[in-house]
């Protein structure tokens, strides 16, 4: 029981990560792949943030009323990661739009078939 409570955050992260990975690997639709990619990315945010939480601590804004603060360093790293993540997703969507113009479809298999013809 204590083992479950001690690492529940990692297990939730892994379940979300596997869900995202499955979408990216198994589905051929490119918009869906992008959503899966962002789910995977968000699970990595959780992986970074959850070890920085201290039970009984508070958000890292200095005040005289509080003594214990959660670790601020992962927050900074993940702020950067979120914004960079949106930049990559936007680039991916621009590619999807271009592929749709060139092939008329956004399904992996259909694009592959047209390439072989």
């Amino acid at each position: 029981m204590s083992l479950i409570l001690a690492s529940i955050n990692y297990w939730v992260t892994i379940i979300l990560m596997i869900g995202g990975l499955y979408i990216v690997v198994a589905h051929g639709n490119m918009v869906k792949k992008l959503v899966g990619l962002s789910i995977f990315q968000t699970s990595v945010y959780l992986l970074f943030l959850s070890p920085g939480k201290i039970l009984g601590g508070t958000a890292p804004i200095i005040s005289e009323k509080f003594e214990v603060y959660s670790n601020p360093l992962p927050h900074v790293l993940i702020l950067t990661a979120i914004v960079v993540g949106v930049a990559t997703i936007a680039l991916g969507m621009a590619l999807v739009v271009r592929i749709n113009e060139a092939y008329g479809t956004i399904e992996d298999d259909e694009v592959h078939e047209m390439e072989q013809d």
Partner: peptide, 19 residues
């Protein structure tokens, strides 16, 4: 809930809104 209020704000605005 994990005390990352700045990150939560960014995620709600950028992750849920913009993307």
């Amino acid at each position: 809930a994990l005390d990352a209020v700045d990150v939560a704000m960014t995620e709600a605005a950028v992750g849920a809104g913009m993307s």
